[in-house]
Amino acid sequence: MIVVGLTGSIGMGKSTTAKMFADEGVPVHDADATVHALYSGKAAPLIEKAFPGTVKDGVVDRSELGKHVVGNPDAMARLEAIVHPLVREAEIEFLDKARAENRPFVILDIPLLFETGGDSRVDRIVTVTAPAQVQRERVMSRPGMTEERFEALLARQTPDAEKRRRADFIIDTSLGMDCARAKVRDLVSVLSADGHEKRRTEAD
């Protein structure tokens, strides 16, 4: 089975692209969704211990947590040390299930693929991109977003140009939904064929 890492900086359209793969029947493991589930589950007491006052009624208050970690590298590192191993556990369970189902390939939707070393765990990389001005307009239109927060988030992410350079495939979401969906369908065909070929080679 081929493991494909899907990544892209904030505002590039990665989540929308991940849904397009899911709509084509491809198993997608969403790291953000996993974190969201962990924030109301096993990660909540660990985060409350590290950052008192950030958990309300058993659920991490993301806004309150953000006050502790955004722009604070040491605090962010403490948070990641709690969350990343739990996300990795869920990812392994997902991969085991997909292999048992003989899937030719799967998508790991990982926003910080390069930043966390996740690129070492995948066979192919798809980077979702858009021009910088489009990215800025998308992000700044989000509720509660400020210029300072946007810049802090960008500072934590590998530059888009570097992500594109290291990608096997690139999807530009600024060209419209139909264009992005066509590209996804092309990749599903290519990656399915590659996955079946890999399985035959390993069987031989």
Rank of each mutant, 00 (worst) to 15 (best):
R78W: 04
R149A: 14
D109S: 14
K56S: 10
H84S: 03
D204G: 14
R103T: 09
V87W: 06
P131V: 01
T17G: 02
E101Y: 01
A75Y: 02
R142C: 13
P104F: 06
V59H: 12
G58L: 04
V3C: 07
V126C: 01
Q157N: 14
T158V: 11
V184K: 12
S192R: 14
G176P: 10
S63A: 15
T201Q: 15
A50Y: 01
S120G: 04
A18V: 01
L6N: 12
E197R: 15
H196L: 14
P45H: 10
M145I: 03
H84W: 14
A152E: 15
D57E: 15
A22F: 02
K49Y: 01
F169Q: 11
Q133I: 03
P85V: 01
R62I: 07
I47F: 12
S141D: 09
A100G: 13
R138C: 11
R88N: 08
V35D: 02
E137V: 09
P111A: 08
H196D: 12
D119R: 12
R142M: 08
I110F: 08
L108H: 03
S174V: 08
P85N: 10
M76E: 07
V128H: 07
V4A: 00
V122M: 07
H29N: 14
V3S: 09
T129P: 05
N102C: 02
V60K: 07
F51Y: 13
R136N: 10
E115C: 04
I125R: 04
P52F: 05
A18E: 05
D168N: 15
M145Y: 02
L154V: 09
G71C: 03
V3H: 07
H29A: 05
Q157C: 03
V139N: 09
L112N: 12
R200T: 13
T158N: 03
R78N: 14
L113P: 11
N102A: 14
G41W: 04
D74V: 14
A100H: 09
R121I: 05
S192M: 03
G71T: 00
G117D: 04
V134K: 02
A37F: 00
E24C: 15
V134E: 06
V190P: 00
S120N: 11
T201N: 06
V60L: 02
I82V: 08
D178I: 00
L108Q: 08
G71F: 01
F169C: 09
A132K: 08
T7I: 02
E137Y: 00
M1C: 07
G25I: 03
